[in-house]
Structures are given as structure tokens and as C-alpha cells.
Amino acid sequence: MSALSLRNLLKTFGGLVAVANVSFEVEDLSIVGLIGPNGAGKTTVFNMITGNYRPDSGDVIFNRRAITGMPTHEIVSLGIARTFQNIRLFQNMTVLENVLAGCHCRMKAGLFSSMFRFPRQRREERHAVEQAMRELAFVGLDRQYNNLAGNLSYGNQRLLEIARALASQPRFLILDEPAGGMNDQETEDLMGLIRNIRGRDITVLLIEHDMNLVMRVCEKIVVLEYGAVIAEGTPAQIKTNPLVIEAYLGVED
């Protein structure tokens, strides 16, 4: 069954066609990579899935339900979480508080009950802190919970964004260049992490320029160029696809 399917997504900015009739499926519990040269429209596709952009036409179907044009926060509560290409952490807040933001949509306390801290809300709050610490431990940052997010290394900031996204208890995780700015060792760790995320029954869709990571971690790859899908298939198929080699990977020596 496919967790997410995109059907003929179209998005134009002024006269520029950023995404032209993109359709592809993401199978449940798979790890799918979306690759393509800079400006191919990868992030625009992500933004349409997460409700940051509304497509001009086409549909986004998540678990057999059309979510096209829904506001972002509702999409998050349906179970799609994301990270950003240009890291968007709350830089002046602590690591823990950043992750608590992700817990927010799973908490129920209203304005007054959260203010006056009834026992039930205190429990909920304590539970949220535990949940946040669990996600921090998962990405290996629990010992840094009280540091400012802005003081973390670049690679750790990327991991923190993943923890924050996981805290919203998603069934589907979208990672926009998770290895951007990471060194080789960190990228190696990230691959293990992505597999472990899938191990928690979360489907993963990622954009990445690090071909080593994409080829080793993804089960399916979709290649975008000039806003259109030019190829999709297993890493082995993509590696040998002449269209992809021409458009993106270049000819190997």
C-alpha cells in the first residue's frame, strides 16, 4: 500500500514552472530518496506535501486521504513531520524546548488548564518532557538538553531537527538534505539513524545530494529535473539509467 501518493502536482511561481505534473508513490514503511540537480523543484514538492505551498493543481494523498492545500499544522497532526533544508531551529531556546515544540500537537491542555496546572496537565507536561528526552536520546543529544540550540554543531543541529520532527509522533517523515554540512562520520551515523527511524514504523522520504547516502539507504529513488520526474526505480536502476546519468550524475570515469 502506498503511504503517500502525489498526483500530477503543478506549481508555478509567476511565469516559472517550478513543478510540472509530478506524480510518484511512496510505499508504506519504505525509504525513498528524491534527487535532482539544484533548482529541480525538490523542495517545492516537499513544501506542497507539508502544506507550506498550495499546488496550482494536482493532489497529495496521504493514507488514502486528500490533504492537498490543508494548513501545515493539520498535516502535522495527521502524521507528516518534516525538517528544513536551511535549519530552522529555535536558536535561542534550549535543545529540550525545541523538541517540546514537536510534542505540542500531541498535547491537549487548553489555555486555562495549562495555566493553572491541574494534575492532569502536570502529568501531560511531565510526559511531554519524557517524550522529548526519549527523542533526544534517540538522536544522541539527551546530554545536551539544557544547551542552547544555536550552540550545537551544525551536524547536531540537523539531528535536533530530526528529534523535533519525531516528537510529533509522525507516521511519515520528510527530511530535506539531512546530511547537509555533516562530515563523513556523521553521515555514516545518519544512515544508521534513518534505518532506525524506519524501524520505528515511520516511512521516510528524503532529499539528499550525498549520493553515497542516497544509494545505500534508499530503496527507491525518484529523479527530478526541471520540475518533472525523469526516472524512478531502485538505486541499481537509477545508477544505470542513461537519462539520469546524462542529466545529473555525469559520466563515470
Binding site: 528526552m133 534517540f138 544522541g140 539527551d142 544508521g192
Partner: peptide, 13 residues
């Protein structure tokens, strides 16, 4: 709660 929960990154934990 530090160090109490499982880690998903093999090298560190």
C-alpha cells in the same frame, strides 16, 4: 532522564 532512553545512532550509544 539523561542516558535513560535508547539511542538510534550506533556509534555514539
Amino acid at each position: 532522564l539523561m542516558g535513560k532512553y535508547a539511542c538510534g545512532i550506533s556509534r555514539q550509544c
